[in-house]
Each structure stands twice: as C-alpha cells, then as structure tokens.
Design a protein around this nucleic acid. Sequence first.
DNA 1: GCCGTTGACTGAAACGTTTTAGGCAACAGA
DNA 2: TCTGTTGCCTAAAACGTTTCAGTCAACGGC
Lengths: 347, 347
Amino acid sequence: MSIQGQRLVRGADVAHAAGVSVATVSLVLNDRRNVVLSERTRDRVREAARRLGYLPNRVAQSLIQGRTRTMGVVLPSLASSFVARIVDGIGSAATSAGLGLLLAHSRHDPESEDRQLEILLGQRVEGIVIVAGEGTLPTLGRRLDRLQQSATPFVVVDDDTHGHRGDCVVSDDLQGMDLAVAHLASLGHRRIAHLGAGTATSTARARQDGYRAAMTRLRLRVDRDWIAGDAFRSADPAASLMCLLRARRPPTAVVAANDRHLAAALPSLLAAGVQVPRDLSIVGYANYDFASYLGLTSVEQDPELIGAKAFERLRSRIEEGPSKPTRIRMPVRLVLRSSTQPAFLRA
Amino acid sequence: MSIQGQRLVRGADVAHAAGVSVATVSLVLNDRRNVVLSERTRDRVREAARRLGYLPNRVAQSLIQGRTRTMGVVLPSLASSFVARIVDGIGSAATSAGLGLLLAHSRHDPESEDRQLEILLGQRVEGIVIVAGEGTLPTLGRRLDRLQQSATPFVVVDDDTHGHRGDCVVSDDLQGMDLAVAHLASLGHRRIAHLGAGTATSTARARQDGYRAAMTRLRLRVDRDWIAGDAFRSADPAASLMCLLRARRPPTAVVAANDRHLAAALPSLLAAGVQVPRDLSIVGYANYDFASYLGLTSVEQDPELIGAKAFERLRSRIEEGPSKPTRIRMPVRLVLRSSTQPAFLRA
DNA sequence: GCCGTTGACTGAAACGTTTTAGGCAACAGA
DNA sequence: TCTGTTGCCTAAAACGTTTCAGTCAACGGC
C-alpha cells in the first residue's frame, strides 16, 4: 500500500531488517505472550520497527481478523448543535474505547442516506448509530430493514418510532414536559397551553403527549384550542402562538416543544404588546445556546450523554448479540430563567 | 468476514450461485467494459448478487487497490458550533465525492490527538484535515512532522502558524477586521479600541494585526492602552473591557476578536451603566447563533465553506502530489445589527 | 547413542477482493 | 485438416497482515 506513490513500510521490511520472519514481527509487536520468544529477538524486532517507522496496516488487520474496530454514524447534518453535541458524545466514547468512527452525512436526503449506509456496510463497520433527522425520518424503516438484513447492530438516536425493532436512545420527553408544566403550576398557573412542533417526529409527539399527561396528573383542564402547531410540520410558529392567545379562555402560560419555535414567535408577541413574563410565562425546550440570552426558562437535555449512552448500548449489543430491543430514555432538567413568573403577578 | 457470527455473502458465493468464477463476478459488478463478457453472463451475475444481497467488502478492496477512499478529520471536539459547521462542510463534500470520513476526536488532549492520528495513519486514510484547537495547538508541529514522515497529505484549518510547511485554510481575519473598523469609522468613530482574544492562536493574532492595519489604513491613531486582552489566554474579558473604558482617551467603539468574549463582558458593561450602542458601539467576530439575539453587529465567517474548501484542497493535493504549500484565506462579511450607531449620536 | 522434552522460531494458509495473462471453444479461411 | 482469429471466461497472483501447526536445534536423562 502506498501514499503518494511512496511505498510504505511493511511487516516484511521490518522482518528483513531484524533478520526474522514476518510471523515473528507480528508476534512481537502484538505482544503475544503465550508463544515463546527470546528477549533478544523481541528487542531486535522492536528496534527495527521503530527505526523504520513501521505502522501496521489496519486494513490488512481488519481483513484477516474479520473485525474493523470501527463504528459508523449516520446523520443528516452537523449544523444543528443538538446533533453535533450528540456526535461529540459518540466520538468521545469512541476515542476512549480506541475505536474508529466513520461519519456518514446524508444532508437530509433519504437517497443520499441510503448510499452512505451502503458505504458503511461495505466498510464492515461493527455497529451503526443513526441520528434521526426530520427529512430522512419517513424512510428510516427501510434502512433499518437493510441493517437487519445485514445483521449489523444499530442504535437509533432521537427517535423511537421504531423502538420495537431495535435499540433507541431518546431524551425523556414525558419527564421534561412534566417538569415544565409542574413548574408553571407551582407558580400558580392553571391555564397552560402547548406550542407544539408538529407531529412528524416522535419527539414532537412525545412532548405533546407529555404535556397532556402532565396536565392530567395535575388535574388541570386542557381546552381544545390550547394545543397549537400540531399540524404536520407547523409552518409558522408565530401564527400558532398568536392563535393560542386568541383562545376562548386565553392561557397565562405556554410550554413549547422547541426553543427555536418559541424564539421565532417572540417578535410578533412583542409586536402585539404582549410582555413576557408579565402577560405570559413561557417555557422552551432544548435549552439552545441562545436561550440564556433570551432569559428563557427551558428544559435542558444532555446531548453528549445521549451520544455516549448510544455508543455504550451499541457496544454491549455487539458483545452480547441479539436480544430484546431496549428503549433508553435519558433524564432532562429544567433550567429556570426569567421568562416565567407567578400567575398572581399578572397585570 | 462476519458480523454477529453470521458469515456475510462473499464474491465467491455469488460466483457459485451464478455458475461463474470470482473473477467474473468482480468484472461484471465493476462494469469493466474493456474486457468482453456476454450479456447473458452479466445478467446472471447481477441477478445472483442482487438475490444474495452481495455487498463487496471495501476492506478487501482497499487492501488490493492500495487506496481506502477515506479521509481523516482530526478535531478537538464538536462542542464548538464553529468546528461542527466546518466538519459539516467537510462531510458534505465527502458525501458528494463518495469518500468515507473517519473522525478522530482528541478531546483537547495532545496525547490523545497523537494516538488518534496513529489510528488514522494505520487505517491508511488518503488525506487528513486537522481542525486546530487551542489545547492541542502547541504540539501541532510534531503531528505535522509525523504526517510529513508518513507522506500523508494534510490540510490545517483555522490556524496558519505552520502555513509554510503545508496547506492551510483560514478565514480572512485581516479583511474581517478591516470591515469592522471601516464600518465604525464610516459611522464617525475615531477612537476605536480592540478587545483581543489572547495571542495563543494565529487567528487571535491575525485579528489583532488586522485591527492595527485597518486603523493605519484609515489614518486613525491607536493608543497604547486600546488593545486589551492580549495576554496569553485572556482570563477575564469583562475586566479587559472595563479596563479599555478607563483608558486615558476612552474609545467610543470596540471591535472584539470574538463574540463570546464580548457576550461574556456585556453584563458588567451594563452593570457599570454603559449603554450599547448609546455610550459604546461594539462589533463582534464569528457571528455566533446568539449574536442575532443580542443584536450584535458581527463579522460573519462561513465555516461550511471553509470545510468544503479544505476538503477540495486536500483532494487536489492528493491528485497532484507535493508542491508549494498554499495558504487559503476565505472571505468574510459584516452583519449589521443594532450594537453600532453613529458617533455623533453619543450622549 | 538414543529418546523425549523444551524453547525459539518459521512456513504457509487464510481473509476477500482485483487484475492480467492466458486457456479454450467455436468458427472462418485456406 | 490445419491455422488463425475472435469471443468469453478463468486461474492464479497479489495486497499485508495473523495464526497455528510444525520444524529444528539444544539439552537432559538413561
């Protein structure tokens, strides 16, 4: 194998230099202690290897050993900091484990994601983490089919639609929504509405379910028109939010399924003369970077931990072989800021 | 090669099913048109391959062809959105080119980065993009030595300290600073100071140089105490900024080397009763997500494009072999927001 | 001097491809 | 019938490792 035409040092070169066979070189460098080798030979080989700058070819190793020590990650894009931080967690875990990480970028395109997946499978990665993306979600099923057909262990992150078919790691949206609603309720709010993020993703649906469950648990009534933006891919969060405020019994607080939606809706809120939190308490979700600058109370996930957990799950799945799929829900926490205040302080 | 103990389909299996030799399978599937094969045989092979779900083993392909069709990326962490977006650009380009991307995560640790680099080299990646990180910068040189010794093409991103030894892609900090200073000057500001980001990174130094150059070009005097935070890794941007305001001739505007530093310093500015932009116009650098929420005028880079460019450079370096290193500076643009106003409007 | 044992190393197969020289029919022309 | 020629396909080597059965010398015991 060569790079730039220049032939790289092979085991045979080291063997020649040390006056031994290639087998011996391999034995020495992999420190196989069960086979007897004299200290003198070991030293000679190590010295020759060092002198020649010998680095064993992992491609050949993979081929003969039947394992690549590499994991694959499929993702739509790294533009979202949530995804990037998940991959950060995966990468960090991979580094600790001494495993390689092969990235497959679908750019939100299902066809492209299929192709990238084939590359990963061709490369014989030992396991695959799929980070769900809205654009590629509808066809996720066929890729899982492909993975199961090829018997490659996988874990899906940030979507549990296919949780019955394989492992997945998601953040605990029910808990998150419960924290958010309970916080508002503890401030005396009773009329709490939900600004959803559509029903296209399992997270968006889970958050909506979580909102309902929390309201029920706290014995708070949910008006029919208190759930906004539940259309497929709610186009305009601002319009949805303004719609909420024109409800028959207008809410005094809103929990959103996503910081971004909320942030996008803020300007029109202010334009309509609605002051936060005086007239309306709001709670976001995801705790994006900008939430702290907006003073937005938000449910915080831990993407790095989600990634690390997914990696860990994948490793034990590889070790232990097929078994019942597990659905892992990672805990979240509520970060209090200035966008919420007691209901009795309202104007 | 097997995954989960289950033997995968090999070319030999397809050959057997189609009643031909392995050679023929390879010839058909790679569509070698220079060798004559009957249409009937081609169809039989393709059909058998499809039926058995045959996916050629890229590991074996790499070994025999002497090329892996894979690039490596070395980075400190994906927690920074700037780095994540650069990697996004690289990944997107790799996807287009049909190349694999192997990620090496150093977690800001030089030793770890060395180890990861060895993994990439062992894997025989065809080229490596190194995304510079402050923690691993001091020892970057020895890694470049290693790369040159192994004759692996590389490109360094976001640092040009070693620009004489190899290709690098950075954003044009001189231009960025010139834009920022010129904008303030056009608003009538004459006393413009610089909040630096230390001198540890070549970007921080370049921005400081850019500030000086711009001031000189516009024939504006720079007071000795107008450059703050130029100590190694300026610990406290807030203190540095307040220090600037206590200068003998206090500036009416500040250009920062980094949005983050500026954002971190804002609270103490407000606490001191300094209003932006009434008392002080400020310009940031990097245009982070939060800049728009702060209404911060900022110099915007294009990390995705930087990544794409680095990838492209690497590819042509691989094609064309060794030649003079090139230092690529990517253009930036100024995003105007509400943190700057004409000097004559000052209180 | 013969036999068994131990210690030190090696030969060769194997992994799954690609590549190229060449084999072998079939057929045409002499 | 012999001799090319053409069309189609294959055998075998090669890539750079790892692994294990096996070789070979030295040595000790009798």
